[in-house]
Design a protein around this nucleic acid. Structure first.
Lengths: 213, 213
DNA sequence: AGTTCTCGATACAGATGTGTATCCGATGCA
DNA sequence: TGCATCGGATACACATCTGTATCGAGAACT
C-alpha cells in the first residue's frame, strides 16, 4: 500500500521512469488541468501504461506531491544559478537601480520558461486548495521558495543600504502574483508574454523601495 | 440543439431554476473545481435532476459562460452600490488619503464575500484557459470589469488632482492579483481572511500615487 | 373545466476512468 | 549459465459521467 521509502526507491531505471511520468504530468496538468488529466493519459504521454504508474506512485495525488517537491527544488536551483551569473563589480551605476534589475532578473530566471508550466503550478495550487492531503505539501514548498527568495532580497537590500516600505515577503508575494496574473492574461488573449514584463516588475519593486526623496 | 434565445427563455419558473443551478455550480466549483463537479452533483445540490439541467443549458461549458456573465453583472452592481454609499463631503482630511480609503473600500466591496466564490472564479479562469470556447467569454467579462473599474479610479484621481506612476489598469490588475493571492494563501493555511487586508491594499495603492514628495 | 404546452424526472446506451491482480520479459547476481 | 527479483504490461471488475429519448404532472390560457 505504501510506496516504501527504503527498499523500492533507488534504481536508475526506476528513477528515470519516475521523472518521465512527472514530466508528462506537468505538461498535461498545464494543458488539461489536474482533474482533466487521467492517469492513463499521463502514462501514455510518458510512454508507459498504468502498470508503471501504480508501480511508482500510490495515486495521482501522490504524484502531485512529488511534482510540487521537484518544482521547489528546480526553483531554488534555478535561482541560485541566476545569482551565480550576476557580475560582482561594485557601483559604477546607482546601486539601487542595479539591485532592482538584478533582483527582477533572478526572479524571472527562477520562473518556469514555458507558460504551460506556470499554468500547471496554478492548477496544482487550486488542486491543493481543495485536497487537504496536498495542502501541507504545497505550503511547505511555497514557504521554502518564499523564505529563501525574500531573505535573499533582504540581503541584497542591506548591501546597497536600501529599505522597503512593506515587508520583503509581501513584495515577493506581490511579484509572484503579478507575474502569474500577467502571464495568464497573455495566454487567455493568445498573445505572447509581454516583452516589457521585466520593466513592469522593476517599476513595482522600485515603488516599494524607500531611499531618497 | 441550441438553447434558443427567443422562445424558450423567459418564464419566472424557468428563470428561477436557472439561477438555482448557477448558484449550485458556483458553490461546487469552489469546493471541487470545475472538472471535479459533475452535472449530476450540480443538479443534486440545486434540488433538480439532470433533466432540468439539459433543459436549461446545452452543456457544462455553456453554464460556465452564464456563471461568468452573471458574475460580471454582480461585480459591477456591487461596485456601484458601494460607490453610492460613499459620503460626498469634500476634503476635511487629505483628499488623497480619503481617495485611497474609498477606492480600496469599493474594490473590496465588489469582491466576493465568501472565499469559496473567489476560488470558484479562479477555477473558471483556469478552465477558460484550457477551453477555447470559454476564453472569449472570460475576456469579455474581465474587460468589462477592468475597464469600468480603472476608469472609475481615473475619475477619482482626477477629482483630487493626483496621478499614478503606472497606468490605472495595471494598478487594478495588481490589486486583483494581490487580493486573489492573499485570499488563496489564507485558505490554504486554514486561516481566516487577514483583517488588515484593506490596509495592505491601501499601502499598495499609495505606493503608486505620485503627488507630493 | 378542458386543452395545450412547458418543464423537469426517469430510463438507457455508451464512453471513460480507477485500482488491483496477474503475468512476462529483462536485468542483476552467483 | 542458471536463478531470483524487479519493473512494467495486460486484463478485469467496478464505478461514474454524459447526453438523449421518452414520459408525466402541472401551469397557463381560453
Amino acid at each position: 500500500m505504501n510506496t516504501t521509502p527504503e527498499t523500492v526507491r533507488r534504481s536508475p531505471r526506476r528513477e528515470a521512469t519516475r521523472q518521465r511520468l512527472l514530466d508528462a504530468a506537468v505538461e498535461l496538468f498545464g494543458e488539461r488541468g489536474v482533474l482533466g488529466s487521467s492517469v492513463e493519459e499521463i502514462c501514455e504521454r510518458a510512454g508507459f501504461t498504468r502498470g508503471a504508474f501504480y508501480s511508482n506512485f500510490d495515486s495521482k495525488d501522490e504524484l502531485c506531491l512529488d511534482v510540487l517537491r521537484r518544482k521547489g527544488e528546480q526553483y531554488l536551483s534555478a535561482m541560485q544559478a541566476a545569482i551565480a551569473v550576476i557580475p560582482d563589480e561594485p557601483g559604477t551605476t546607482d546601486g539601487t537601480e542595479r539591485l532592482i534589475r538584478d533582483a527582477v532578473g533572478v526572479f524571472l530566471e527562477a520562473q518556469p520558461k514555458k507558460s504551460a508550466e506556470l499554468v500547471s503550478m496554478m492548477e496544482l495550487r487550486l488542486h491543493a486548495l481543495r485536497t487537504p492531503e496536498l495542502r501541507e505539501g504545497w505550503l511547505a514548498v511555497h514557504e521554502g521558495i518564499s523564505k529563501s527568495t525574500s531573505s535573499l532580497l533582504d540581503l541584497a537590500l542591506e548591501r546597497v543600504g536600501a529599505r522597503l516600505s512593506v515587508p520583503s515577503s509581501q513584495v515577493i508575494e506581490l511579484l509572484g502574483a503579478v507575474y502569474e496574473n500577467t502571464v495568464s492574461l497573455s495566454v487567455l488573449r493568445g498573445e505572447s508574454r509581454p516583452a516589457d514584463l521585466a520593466e513592469q516588475l522593476a517599476a513595482l519593486l522600485d515603488a516599494f523601495i524607500v531611499g531618497d526623496c
